[in-house]
Amino acid sequence: MSILLNGDTRVLVQGITGRQGSFHTNLMIEYGTKVVSGVVPGRGGQVEHGVPVFNTVAEAVAETQPNCGLVLVPAFAAADAVDEQIAAGIDLIVCITEGIPVLDIIPVYHRAAAAGVRLIGPNCPGLITPGDNVKVGILPGQIHIPGPVGLVSRSGTLTYEVVQALTDVGLGQSTCIGIGGDPVIGTNFIDCVWMFQDDPATEGIVVIGEIGGSDEEECAEFIANEVNKPVVAFVAGRAAPPEKRMGHAGAIVSRGSGTAQAKIDAFRAAGVSVADFPADVARLMKERMQG
């Protein structure tokens, strides 16, 4: 078992003929993901890595029945791409694109929510369920092994660092999700921790946060009240100066709020073990799962 992705996941890739789209479609197929169609306006009828390309999402849905959509198009076109997938009835949408204007995503998020669509991202690496050999996005498959740890993160390479450490101590993963580094994202920590708590295959939960916003604090409160599985966290950005954006659009300590220390304190108060450095997450999780 796992969350969101499994052996029945059928993926549509929007932007499949682009440099990123083509590269990652190939990696997804090599990993075992069923990529059933691609969409690029004006390229309908082409074939990319053996996958049929359509002009519109509606056409691709009618012909290939995807149940998950991946968005790998440039920032100026990404919100429209998500919107097109919502309109075509896809109910799990993963948006990798970085640099989308926030005010483009807000109305699209609300349309997704009203339609019961789960949006992951934007500005995220996607998600992976190693036990079913399925990944949607740009996460490197080779560092993952199947197992009992569910992981949710606002970051990309920092996630890979932690995953590698988990894999190195023999702790495999049920599902790993990157929820994205933008200020406004579709799925937050609580959504994912909730799903992991309800997933019988997940025995321990890793939460990787960073400076900016208050998602970590709200998640900590949720964990204190609703979660009985062991949770280990890491929060990046203790050394970050205030009012400076640290790479991710959402990673900023602004007007005194969103500090790493406040998030670490909230997690500790909720009984979550907080690692001092990324790889230490693996040691702490091993301890918590044995205890």
Binding site: S153, R154, S155, G156, T157, L158, T159, E161, G181, I208, E210, I211, F234, A236, G237, R238, A239, A240, K244, M246, G247, H248, A251, A260, D276, F277, P278
Partner: peptide, 23 residues
Amino acid sequence: NGAGLAMSLLDVIQLNGGEPANF
């Protein structure tokens, strides 16, 4: 490579008594 990992590196440098010159 990566914003989250870059922030973490600064944290680990400070934790070990050093001072980063940049992110």
